[in-house]
């Protein structure tokens, strides 16, 4: 029996925090690739500490719905899941290449496949592009457009910037958008000065965050100048200093994220049948008439 456990941060204050986790779990359930799909949280229930005891299966894949390798994926989750003998060297990662480690979870005395975070998977690049398609409602968006991938800088987590650069570079290599830039909230190049970094009249701004919350709904819109105060709201696109900014909100809310969760499990050995194709098909942006 094959089980998927998606672990995410969650929130004591904001119900939107766990919404993408539930949405992607539902998408994956609908594929039937797993006998069960469970969700566990740091700030909601079931907690990381107790989620594994709700799991029935014997082939268990744990996929962290986090954007980068760091404190949560390397310390908090392994500790709270009680992965025996965990050491970050199990992943042998350069900050981007964590794939999976198979360890016994002491809570249930069964092996689990502990996967790398979704945010650093190569398939995440496609989700960022898909997010640009969604927010512009154009499955062919690219020509005449710039794309800004935005995240925290290194102040909070060195690997956060690595993930942003990694995806921005990969998208740039595709020559689809006129310009692709990695921007940061707390270091240069800063998202506050977005129009200065682009020549294009239209720029899609995709924050590499799992869920909408304070950073994506308050911080970034205000910093970029989409609005004076987030409570006023803003249009998509919104023109700032002559640049039309298409603000996408958290990339993690994009339905194609379910694909990255599946990719992580597949890389760790899960048997998915046609689920990957199914998810790519069911989550795509409709082409117009």
């Amino acid at each position: 029996m094959q089980s998927l456990v998606i672990v995410a941060h969650g929130s004591h204050l904001n119900p939107e925090s766990s919404a993408p986790t539930y949405d992607h779990a539902d998408t994956i359930r609908a594929t039937g690739a797993f006998d069960e799909v469970r969700t566990g949280f740091w700030k909601e229930e079931p907690h990381f500490r107790e989620v594994l005891r709700t799991v029935e299966g014997d082939e268990i894949y744990v996929v962290p719905l986090f954007v980068s390798e760091g404190y949560f994926t390397e310390q908090v989750i392994p500790r709270e899941l009680r992965l025996a003998g965990w050491d970050v060297s199990e992943w042998d990662s350069d900050g981007l290449s964590a794939d999976q480690a198979t360890l016994v979870a002491e809570d249930i005395d069964r092996e689990v496949h502990y996967c790398g975070p979704v945010g650093t998977h190569r398939a995440m690049t496609d989700v960022i592009v898909r997010r640009a398609e969604s927010v512009t409602d154009d499955p062919d968006v690219g020509e005449g457009f710039g794309l800004a991938v935005v995240g925290h800088g290194t102040e909070r987590n060195e690997n956060s910037a690595k993930a942003i650069e990694y995806h921005a570079d990969r998208i740039a290599e595709r020559d689809r958008f006129d310009e692709v830039k990695a921007l940061y909230m707390d270091e240069d190049p800063e998202v506050d000065d977005l129009p200065e970094h682009f020549e294009s009249d239209d720029v899609v701004l995709v924050p590499l965050f799992i869920a909408d919350g304070y950073h994506t709904q308050e911080d970034i819109p205000e910093d970029v100048g989409l609005c004076e105060d987030h409570t006023e709201g803003y249009d998509v696109p919104e023109t700032v200093d002559g640049t039309r900014i298409w603000y996408a909100g958290a990339v993690g809310t994009e339905p194609l994220m379910a694909d990255v969760v599946l990719e992580r499990a597949a890389d760790a050995g899960a048997d998915l049948g046609t689920a990957l194709d199914d998810v790519r098909e069911t989550t795509r942006v409709a082409t117009g008439d």
């Binding site: 229930e45 079931p46 907690h47 107790e50 989620v51 005891r53 709700t54």
Partner: peptide, 10 residues
């Protein structure tokens, strides 16, 4: 389990 997560397991 959805209304009261992990309560049955505990």
């Amino acid at each position: 389990e959805t209304i009261y997560p992990a309560t049955v397991a505990n």
